[in-house]
Amino acid sequence: MKKTTIRCPYCGARATLRPSSVVYGERAKPGGYLYICDRYPKCDAYVGAHQRTKLPMGTLANGDLRHKRIEAHKTFDQMWKSGLMTKWQAYRWMQGKFALNEDQAHIAKFSEYMCDQLIAACNQVYENLDMAA
């Protein structure tokens, strides 16, 4: 397991890999982990960790940013869940639309601004489909 040091972008404290039950209690997925700001719960920043590698899935986020990322994921995931394109094609579309490389094209790394841009771009695709129908 690769050791990684993460600093909270909100308060500057370190973030530590901890079981997700620290945040989610009984609702936590078994075996799930999060990087949680050491000042939690005063500082509400955390991010999920990959099951296998325990590396962070993205950047630490507070409640507002987590909500925006969830919203962006719901809108973006419709692109491939609806059958409009495959999941791979949807991520390639995102990369091209925003000039991102493969490492950057993860909603868990997006700012609120980038989430808003992705939501708007996806909605534009859906509107164009409606017009063509």
Rank of each mutant, 00 (worst) to 15 (best):
H106L: 09
V47R: 08
K109A: 03
Y126W: 15
F98P: 12
H106P: 05
H50E: 12
A108F: 02
R69C: 01
T86G: 07
A108R: 12
G63C: 05
L60F: 07
A121Q: 10
I6S: 03
T75E: 11
S20H: 11
Q104Y: 00
E112V: 14
Q104C: 10
K2R: 13
V125Y: 12
T53A: 12
E71P: 00
R66Y: 02
H73Y: 09
L55Y: 00
A72R: 10
M57G: 05
Q104A: 14
K29A: 06
D130W: 10
K3M: 04
R27I: 00
T4N: 07
H73P: 02
C115E: 04
T16R: 14
H50G: 13
Y113C: 06
G25P: 09
T86V: 12
H50D: 15
P19T: 12
Q124H: 11
K87P: 00
K109P: 05
L65C: 04
C122T: 14
M94C: 09
Y35R: 08
H67F: 11
C11W: 08
K3W: 04
I6R: 02
M79P: 07
V125C: 13
W88D: 12
S20I: 02
C122N: 12
R52T: 13
F98M: 12
F76D: 04
C37R: 10
K74T: 03
E71C: 10
C8P: 09
F110M: 15
M85E: 03
I36W: 01
Q51A: 15
K2T: 09
A72G: 06
D130I: 14
D116E: 15
P30S: 12
C37W: 01
L17T: 09
T4Q: 09
T16V: 10
L118W: 03
W80R: 07
H67S: 14
V22S: 04
M79I: 06
T16C: 07
H67G: 06
A108L: 05
Q51T: 13
Y35T: 06
F98L: 09
H73C: 09
G58L: 14
A13C: 14
F110G: 05
G32M: 08
K42G: 10
Y33N: 08
G31P: 09
W88C: 04
A99P: 00
M79W: 06
Q51S: 14
F98I: 11
N62D: 15
G58A: 14
